[in-house]
Design a binder for these strands. Structure first.
Lengths: 205, 205
DNA sequence: TGATCCGTCGGACAGGGTGTCCGACGTGGT
DNA sequence: ACCACGTCGGACACCCTGTCCGACGGATCA
């Protein structure tokens, strides 16, 4: 391996490591209870152990940083959501299991996901990202509902588009509110209750 | 009526009128598509036709202004929501009617309600207000679900607390998303679809 | 070893925001 | 004709953003 290549890869590793320091710093600060909005670049840079000016060598602004920081949390959350759409229609037990996993993911990444919805409230770029990401899941769920109707396992009276969006946004908000105010004891009851309600909606009593 | 009293009441009227000018200005600016966060006091004062310093004679800060501006919208929205809980359990037609009214209210006040949830994302005071207000409705709905279970008109397997919160938050988000992206043509279908889904959840097929 | 390269630092800068304060102004009440 | 009071507009201290630049220092190469 030529030395220039070796250097290039080492530099890339270094950039990666520093960027990681910054995203970790954000995660810590959010976990401590700060609002993403209230975090200045100065505060984030200090927590990450870099100069404020250096921050701008890594991220164009706080929005880009947020999207980068929440990447993994978003992926894992929607992996759990899609597992619900895939495996949660078998029986009530399977639904409860997948919903419990959804709750677990949302709890694990609560501060990051809260920051995402927080900033989505006033930053068009973040809003577009979040709407699109949730929308993609809603579409998966819609298809699953429509397929279930065809197969006779889902109430044919339901409007799949509206129902899918209602279920998804309701679950997201419900769980977000729950994890913000409950230490974890109520998770099982929440998962059970939500699974029961979803199951009832499908019309498969 | 003594002249001091007359003066006091006229002054109060004047304060009221100016405050109204300001809240109207905010409403206009939001309707034009601005984010509440991006509106500076300068911009609001200019639109209201007063000096920036005068703004602070009327409102301590933007948060107080927002809560004041959205008062009526909030009241009307929850009046519609409570009508759903009160009258929407009779039959599917009644449910569809009350849900349609909910959609209409949310559309009528869309910019203000969006501003409220926007700021609730990062301002503790607004977050507390909004959570409490929605929570109050969730409690009303929960009671209605529990009563329905006792009367045998609602599926007894449902967890009233979880189900009420899921329904309420889901409806709020669903309708907010909808009105933000649809000019009004889809309102009837949305109301019908949501009512059907809620009805199915209650288990009264 | 010494010259060089390159990333980081820290500070300065312009531009914009907040909330407070105060003197100047004018209008309505006496 | 006078005074009181609300409004104006500008100055203030402070905070934040994003950009720029000279200074520093560690790794790299001759």
């Amino acid at each position: 391996m030529p030395s220039v290549t070796r250097r290039a890869s080492r530099d890339a590793d270094h950039r990666e490591a520093v960027a990681r320091q910054v995203t970790d710093a954000v995660e810590r600060l959010l976990a401590e209870g700060s609002t993403y909005t209230s975090l200045g670049v100065q505060r984030i840079a200090a927590e990450a152990g870099i100069a404020r000016s250096t921050f701008y060598l890594y991220f164009p602004d706080k929005v880009a940083l947020l999207l980068r920081t929440t990447e993994i949390a978003t992926e894992e959350l929607f992996a759990a959501a899609e597992a619900w759409a895939r495996e949660g229609f078998e029986d009530l037990a399977a639904l409860e299991r997948t919903v419990a996993e959804l709750v677990a993911q949302q709890r694990a990444h609560a501060p990051l996901l809260a920051a995402l919805t927080e900033v989505a409230g006033y930053e068009p770029e973040v809003a577009a990202f979040w709407r699109a990401r949730v929308g993609r899941f809603v579409e998966v769920l819609r298809r699953r509902l429509a397929a279930g109707q065809k197969a006779g396992t889902v109430d044919r009276a339901l409007d799949p588009t509206v129902t899918a969006a209602w279920m998804a946004w309701g679950a997201e908000r419900l769980i977000a509110q729950h994890v913000a105010g409950d230490g974890g004891r109520g998770d099982a009851r929440l998962a059970r209750g939500l699974a029961t309600a979803i199951w009832a909606t499908l019309g498969r009593t």
